[in-house]
Design a protein around this nucleic acid. Sequence first.
DNA 1: CTGCCAACATACCAACCAGTATGTATGGTA
DNA 2: TACCATACATACTGGTTGGTATGTTGGCAG
Lengths: 216, 216
Amino acid sequence: MLAARKSPKRRATKLRDPERTRERLLQAASREIYRSGFQSASLDIILASIGVTKGALYYHFKNKEALGYAVVEEVIAPDVHGKWVRPLQSVKDPIDALIGAVQRIPVRLVDVRGGCQLNNLAQEMSPLDAGFRKRLAIVFDAWRKAVASTLREGQTHGSVRRDVGPTDAAGLLIAMVEGYGSLAKNAQDPKVMKAGIRNIVDWLRSLRAPDNRQRG
Amino acid sequence: MLAARKSPKRRATKLRDPERTRERLLQAASREIYRSGFQSASLDIILASIGVTKGALYYHFKNKEALGYAVVEEVIAPDVHGKWVRPLQSVKDPIDALIGAVQRIPVRLVDVRGGCQLNNLAQEMSPLDAGFRKRLAIVFDAWRKAVASTLREGQTHGSVRRDVGPTDAAGLLIAMVEGYGSLAKNAQDPKVMKAGIRNIVDWLRSLRAPDNRQRG
DNA sequence: CTGCCAACATACCAACCAGTATGTATGGTA
DNA sequence: TACCATACATACTGGTTGGTATGTTGGCAG
């Protein structure tokens, strides 16, 4: 009761911080789902990893499903947005921006091993759960539309070839990124991802309009 | 432990057919793993689906892991071999053969929904289990090598452009196939896969040597 | 100081899991 | 006929799962 062995003298404004607890739950769940998949992710392990109990979890989330949905909407979606939507907004050279985004894909062994959070969850849960599929499809759509609109803008400014379909090309880009990610994850080898990125970058360069005054 | 079961005499009527039971177990396990993933695949459900019990399962397989390994080696590997290795052996036009293989990818809703057995299992288990990863890598390697050697043969015969790296192109082909398969699976929409196949076929055509006397 | 409610912790549950120990019928062999 | 390994079926286990019911504490309103 009075044995304040853990609490320091300097009081924070709040000993309980429900918003922070919720955020930590989301992050821990995201990590465990990333490692084991949603179905095999154990709530007990998630809770133990941040030192809270069932009470905290079921106070903030209705059930495991709701926790998974929140991970998609509040962890994965913002991550994709930060990597593939924001960097492509109002750029002067869409091709360079796309190449930059592709080259910023993490290629360390630890990154390649786990694969893509979005793709992992989509592969596992889309056929099994409509709620996951719907939320994940929103993220994929945002990704594809961001790439497509960047390409379209490049076409109006003359830096992107006119004979490529923006939506088609965006789909192909995502397919290549996810496909190489899968191969690299299975091989557990960063070299596979690096070679894939080179191929994707080469393909992106081929989308550039040939007769455009660029820097020599 | 595998007992040497060489059947000296083929009986016309067998009430017990251990080889057939083993095969049915493999097929049932393959179906359930395809639906739910390996970790979430319930042995009880697998057994109930073919009307056998634990005794039969653990007579033929040491444990669940061994059952999964056998599915890779005896179900998935032969399937990939039949679709991507055998059709590419000693063909007169490699590009046509590859286009044929790509166009033979199932695109019905039921096929697209489940995704690719090989990729599904690889995505789930490669980071978690070295035994799965090793066996699945063998299948991926056989696939990639079959495509690469076909392309290489086409280069020696002059039907394939000399400036493409066969291994690189084979990796790209597989990445595109798996990538589009992932997108289509998540979208639960055959149109996504069909559009992807068109893009892959277009890319394959671009690999053909330009100045080669072909049928007009 | 006193309620009082948010924000958890604790204890517990039925269902399910992979795996095992043991029972049993079958068909071939001696 | 007697025997016996094979090829399963049956019954059971300890451990884990997501979920719940209830207890407890901190901090603010009054």
